[in-house]
Protein backbone atom coordinates (compact mmCIF):
# COMPACT_ATOMS: atom_id res chain seq x y z
CA UNK A 1 0.00 0.00 0.00
CA UNK A 2 1.23 3.48 -0.81
CA UNK A 3 2.72 5.45 2.05
CA UNK A 4 1.43 8.99 1.90
CA UNK A 5 3.12 10.85 4.71
CA UNK A 6 1.39 13.86 6.24
CA UNK A 7 3.85 15.92 8.30
CA UNK A 8 1.01 17.46 10.37
CA UNK A 9 -0.51 14.11 11.28
CA UNK A 10 2.79 12.30 11.71
CA UNK A 11 1.66 8.90 10.43
CA UNK A 12 0.88 7.35 7.08
CA UNK A 13 -2.79 8.06 6.28
CA UNK A 14 -3.50 4.46 5.36
CA UNK A 15 -2.22 3.20 8.71
CA UNK A 16 -3.60 5.81 11.10
CA UNK A 17 -6.78 3.95 12.05
CA UNK A 18 -5.01 0.60 12.30
CA UNK A 19 -2.26 2.11 14.45
CA UNK A 20 -4.88 3.38 16.90
CA UNK A 21 -6.49 -0.08 17.04
CA UNK A 22 -3.02 -1.61 17.37
CA UNK A 23 -2.33 0.66 20.33
CA UNK A 24 -5.55 -0.54 21.99
CA UNK A 25 -4.64 -4.15 21.09
CA UNK A 26 -7.91 -4.43 19.20
CA UNK A 27 -6.45 -5.50 15.90
CA UNK A 28 -5.71 -9.13 15.23
CA UNK A 29 -4.48 -11.51 12.55
CA UNK A 30 -3.70 -10.08 9.15
CA UNK A 31 -4.21 -6.46 10.23
CA UNK A 32 -1.83 -6.82 13.14
CA UNK A 33 0.89 -8.40 10.98
CA UNK A 34 0.40 -5.71 8.35
CA UNK A 35 0.85 -2.94 10.95
CA UNK A 36 3.87 -4.65 12.54
CA UNK A 37 5.66 -5.13 9.23
CA UNK A 38 4.93 -1.51 8.33
CA UNK A 39 6.26 -0.25 11.67
CA UNK A 40 9.61 -1.92 10.99
CA UNK A 41 10.14 0.25 7.94
CA UNK A 42 8.34 3.51 8.87
CA UNK A 43 9.84 5.87 11.44
CA UNK A 44 6.89 8.32 11.27
CA UNK A 45 4.39 5.64 12.21
CA UNK A 46 6.66 4.48 15.04
CA UNK A 47 6.74 8.08 16.36
CA UNK A 48 2.95 8.31 16.02
CA UNK A 49 2.52 5.12 18.03
CA UNK A 50 4.90 6.38 20.73
CA UNK A 51 2.91 9.60 20.86
CA UNK A 52 -0.32 7.65 21.39
CA UNK A 53 1.37 5.66 24.14
CA UNK A 54 2.27 8.83 26.04
CA UNK A 55 -0.85 10.89 25.24
CA UNK A 56 -3.79 8.52 25.64
CA UNK A 57 -3.15 7.19 29.17
CA UNK A 58 -2.86 10.82 30.35
CA UNK A 59 -6.46 11.48 29.26
CA UNK A 60 -7.82 9.08 31.86
CA UNK A 61 -8.87 11.00 34.91
CA UNK A 62 -9.36 8.52 37.69
CA UNK A 63 -11.62 9.12 40.62
CA UNK A 64 -11.56 6.71 43.54
CA UNK A 65 -14.19 7.74 46.06
CA UNK A 66 -13.80 6.64 49.66
CA UNK A 67 -15.72 3.74 51.30
CA UNK A 68 -17.99 6.38 52.92
CA UNK A 69 -19.07 7.48 49.44
CA UNK A 70 -19.91 3.91 48.46
CA UNK A 71 -21.86 3.30 51.66
CA UNK A 72 -23.92 6.40 50.98
CA UNK A 73 -24.29 5.32 47.33
CA UNK A 74 -25.62 1.89 48.33
CA UNK A 75 -28.04 3.34 50.89
CA UNK A 76 -29.43 5.81 48.35
CA UNK A 77 -29.84 3.33 45.51
CA UNK A 78 -31.55 0.79 47.82
CA UNK A 79 -34.02 3.43 48.97
CA UNK A 80 -34.70 4.46 45.37
CA UNK A 81 -35.18 0.83 44.34
CA UNK A 82 -37.68 0.24 47.17
CA UNK A 83 -39.68 3.28 46.03
CA UNK A 84 -39.56 2.17 42.40
CA UNK A 85 -40.58 -1.38 43.36
CA UNK A 86 -43.56 -0.21 45.42
CA UNK A 87 -44.63 2.14 42.65
CA UNK A 88 -44.44 -0.62 40.02
CA UNK A 89 -46.41 -3.07 42.22
CA UNK A 90 -49.12 -0.46 42.77
CA UNK A 91 -49.19 0.30 39.05
CA UNK A 92 -49.35 -3.43 38.20
CA UNK A 93 -52.39 -3.81 40.45
CA UNK A 94 -54.14 -0.80 38.89
CA UNK A 95 -53.34 -1.69 35.29
CA UNK A 96 -54.08 -5.44 35.58
CA UNK A 97 -57.39 -5.35 33.62
CA UNK A 98 -55.75 -3.37 30.81
CA UNK A 99 -52.82 -5.69 30.30
CA UNK A 100 -52.47 -7.16 26.81
CA UNK A 101 -53.63 -10.69 27.65
CA UNK A 102 -56.81 -10.03 29.71
CA UNK A 103 -58.35 -7.87 26.97
CA UNK A 104 -58.54 -10.60 24.27
CA UNK A 105 -59.45 -13.16 26.96
CA UNK A 106 -62.44 -11.12 28.10
CA UNK A 107 -63.46 -10.43 24.48
CA UNK A 108 -63.32 -14.15 23.64
CA UNK A 109 -65.39 -15.01 26.72
CA UNK A 110 -68.03 -12.46 25.73
CA UNK A 111 -68.22 -13.78 22.14
CA UNK A 112 -68.56 -17.35 23.45
CA UNK A 113 -71.29 -16.34 25.88
CA UNK A 114 -73.28 -14.62 23.12
CA UNK A 115 -72.82 -17.58 20.75
CA UNK A 116 -73.98 -20.11 23.37
CA UNK A 117 -76.96 -17.97 24.32
CA UNK A 118 -78.04 -17.70 20.69
CA UNK A 119 -77.58 -21.45 20.11
CA UNK A 120 -79.57 -22.65 23.11
CA UNK A 121 -82.35 -20.08 22.97
CA UNK A 122 -82.98 -20.28 19.24
CA UNK A 123 -86.63 -19.60 18.38
CA UNK A 124 -87.48 -18.24 21.81
CA UNK A 125 -86.33 -14.76 21.09
CA UNK A 126 -88.66 -12.64 18.89
CA UNK A 127 -85.77 -10.82 17.29
CA UNK A 128 -87.68 -9.30 14.37
CA UNK A 129 -91.38 -8.65 14.78
CA UNK A 130 -92.81 -7.10 11.61
CA UNK A 131 -95.74 -4.72 12.10
CA UNK A 132 -99.05 -5.95 10.50
CA UNK A 133 -99.07 -3.28 7.76
CA UNK A 134 -95.50 -4.15 6.73
CA UNK A 135 -96.41 -7.84 6.77
CA UNK A 136 -99.25 -7.14 4.24
CA UNK A 137 -96.84 -5.25 2.03
CA UNK A 138 -94.40 -8.13 2.12
CA UNK A 139 -97.17 -10.57 1.15
CA UNK A 140 -98.24 -8.31 -1.73
CA UNK A 141 -94.68 -8.05 -2.93
CA UNK A 142 -94.39 -11.83 -3.04
CA UNK A 143 -97.66 -12.07 -5.05
CA UNK A 144 -96.30 -9.50 -7.50
CA UNK A 145 -93.12 -11.54 -7.87
CA UNK A 146 -95.27 -14.62 -8.58
CA UNK A 147 -97.26 -12.72 -11.24
CA UNK A 148 -94.04 -11.78 -13.02
CA UNK A 149 -93.04 -15.41 -12.90
CA UNK A 150 -96.28 -16.57 -14.50
CA UNK A 151 -96.09 -13.77 -17.06
CA UNK A 152 -92.78 -15.18 -18.18
CA UNK A 153 -94.51 -18.56 -18.62
CA UNK A 154 -97.12 -16.86 -20.87
CA UNK A 155 -94.29 -15.48 -22.95
CA UNK A 156 -92.81 -18.96 -23.29
CA UNK A 157 -96.23 -20.32 -24.33
CA UNK A 158 -96.47 -17.74 -27.08
CA UNK A 159 -92.99 -18.72 -28.22
CA UNK A 160 -94.11 -22.36 -28.47
CA UNK A 161 -97.15 -21.29 -30.47
CA UNK A 162 -95.03 -19.34 -32.93
CA UNK A 163 -92.65 -22.27 -33.36
CA UNK A 164 -95.63 -24.60 -34.02
CA UNK A 165 -97.03 -22.24 -36.66
CA UNK A 166 -93.62 -21.91 -38.30
CA UNK A 167 -93.28 -25.70 -38.35
CA UNK A 168 -96.61 -26.14 -40.10
CA UNK A 169 -95.72 -23.53 -42.71
CA UNK A 170 -92.44 -25.25 -43.38
CA UNK A 171 -94.17 -28.57 -43.92
CA UNK A 172 -96.58 -26.96 -46.35
CA UNK A 173 -93.81 -25.36 -48.39
CA UNK A 174 -91.89 -28.64 -48.53
CA UNK A 175 -94.91 -30.53 -49.89
CA UNK A 176 -95.59 -27.83 -52.52
CA UNK A 177 -92.02 -28.01 -53.83
CA UNK A 178 -91.93 -31.78 -54.13
CA UNK A 179 -91.56 -32.99 -57.76
CA UNK A 180 -94.59 -34.53 -59.24
Amino acid sequence: MAERHDPLRGACKDFEQDLILYYYQDCAGIERRRVESHLVSCASCRRFLEELQSLLPATVKSDEPSPAFWQSYSREIRARLVTADEKSRWWDAISFPFRPWPVPAVATALVLAVALTLTFTKGRWPFHQTPPQERELVEMASVTDNLDFFNSFDFLDSMDLLEAVEGKEMQKSETSHQPL
Binding site: K61, D63, P65, Y73, E76, I77, L81, A84
Partner: peptide, 23 residues
Protein backbone atom coordinates in the same frame (compact mmCIF):
# COMPACT_ATOMS: atom_id res chain seq x y z
CA UNK B 1 -17.75 10.14 35.92
CA UNK B 2 -15.85 9.99 32.61
CA UNK B 3 -18.77 11.73 30.95
CA UNK B 4 -19.58 14.24 33.65
CA UNK B 5 -16.30 14.69 35.58
CA UNK B 6 -18.50 15.48 38.52
CA UNK B 7 -18.98 13.18 41.50
CA UNK B 8 -22.57 14.05 42.32
CA UNK B 9 -23.67 14.02 38.67
CA UNK B 10 -21.90 10.70 38.14
CA UNK B 11 -23.63 9.24 41.19
CA UNK B 12 -27.05 10.48 40.03
CA UNK B 13 -26.58 9.26 36.46
CA UNK B 14 -25.34 5.80 37.43
CA UNK B 15 -28.16 5.39 39.98
CA UNK B 16 -30.67 6.53 37.39
CA UNK B 17 -29.31 3.89 35.00
CA UNK B 18 -29.82 1.19 37.67
CA UNK B 19 -33.37 2.41 38.28
CA UNK B 20 -34.18 2.35 34.56
CA UNK B 21 -32.70 -1.13 34.25
CA UNK B 22 -34.82 -2.28 37.22
CA UNK B 23 -38.00 -0.79 35.73
Amino acid sequence: FDFTRDREEAKDLSQEAFLQAFS
